[in-house]
Every structure is written in C-alpha cells, then in structure tokens.
C-alpha cells in the first residue's frame, strides 16, 4: 500500500534526494496542479503525456518510496469545513528541550504541523511553531492555553498569529 510507504517521517530519509529525470518532471508538471478527474486517473496522465501507464505508476511509486511524493490525496479548505480559526502559535522554548517538546506538541490532535525554526532576535524570539485549528477564535485560544500548560517550565514567551486572509494557496510548482 502506498499509504504505508508515505507515512514515514522525514527523519527516516537519510538517503539522497530523488533525482527526477525528464519523464518524472513531465509527470510532476502534469499533476502538480491536480490529478485528472477520471476513475482511472493514472491512465489519463499516461495518455496525456504519451507514456505507458505502467511506467507512470512505477515512477509515482518510486517517488513515494523516496519521500518525493508525500501522498496522493484531497486537500481540504479548512474554512469550508467549518474550521474558521486558524492560528500559527509561536513559542520560545529552551533549545535543549525542543526535540522532546516539539514531539509532544505535535501529538496534540488540534495541532496539524509543528516545526522548529530559527529565532530573529530581538524582533522574533520564538523557535517552535505549531499550527492550531478550531471552529472559532475562542477555541483556538483555549488550545493555545493547553500548549502553554504543556510547555510551562520550559517556556519563556509565546504569541498567536491568527490568519486573516488566504492570499495564495497553489502548492509547489516545478517549471
């Protein structure tokens, strides 16, 4: 199953990146905006690119195995699903605890992504970023308080940045 292969975390990829050849690049370019809406979508891709469907599927599987393809899936619009409050919560936590705390924050069911990123002091003292989603702002703020509880003794300061507009959401575009 493809899903099983794709569920690996990035840390498990010690190997070099996948090197797409010309044919891989054509497949990426043809599908990065979306898969053809067809009951047999890989056949539709193969036909459009004048490739063999077995070749298209083998290349997609190889890219998935190498982590170059996370998954082939639906991306929902949070807002349309009723998640009206989407916040980037940012935390200044002690560096020696960042790995353990990052994992614990990521495990919370209302956190979709969690990253460690560089600080830019004095303007930006925060190093842990956790995306939190809820139906309304009060819910997101309650969840932020839960994270603050979890981080308590290792936490110096934090902030919340609510998203107030989607300006662009196209995803990666290879040219």
């Amino acid at each position: 199953m493809l899903e099983a292969q794709i569920s690996k975390t990035f840390e498990s990829y010690e190997a070099a990146a996948y090197e797409p050849d010309e044919t891989d690049r054509r497949i990426i370019q043809a599908t990065q905006g979306g898969l053809p809406l067809d009951a047999r979508p890989y056949h539709a891709v193969a036909e459009a690119l004048n490739l063999d469907v077995e070749d298209v599927m083998a290349r997609l599987k190889a890219m998935a195995e190498a982590g170059a393809l996370r998954r082939i899936a639906a991306l929902p619009n949070h807002y349309a699903l009723g998640y009206g409050a989407n916040a980037m919560t940012v935390w200044d936590i002690h560096d020696h605890m960042s790995d353990e705390l990052g994992r614990r924050v990521a495990a919370l069911d209302f956190v979709s992504h969690c990253y460690l990123r560089p600080r830019h002091p004095p303007q930006w003292p925060y190093n842990l970023f956790a995306m939190v989603h809820g139906r309304e702002e009060s819910e997101v703020r309650e969840k932020m308080a839960e994270i603050a509880d979890l981080l308590h003794s290792h936490l110096r300061s934090y902030d919340i940045l609510l998203s107030t507009g989607i300006l662009k959401k196209t995803g990666m575009r290879f040219t």
Binding site: F10, Y13, A17, Y18, E19, P20, I28, T31, Q32, G33, G34, L35, L37, L60, M63, A66, G67, A68, L69, R70, R71, I72, A73, A74, L75, P76, N77, A80, L81, K169, G171, M172, F174
Partner: peptide, 23 residues
C-alpha cells in the same frame, strides 16, 4: 470530488510532492 473542488470544499486533489526530496 469534482463538485467538492468546484464548491471550494477541497482546494486540490492530487499528488502532494515534497520539493526537498526532489532536490
């Protein structure tokens, strides 16, 4: 899927590539 895309419930349906793992 087509209707969910048109209605804006889904923003995209297809492969989610990882730029880092493609070099």
């Amino acid at each position: 899927i087509e209707r969910l895309l048109e209605g804006g419930v889904l923003t995209r349906f297809g492969p989610l590539y990882n730029a880092e793992r493609l070099g």
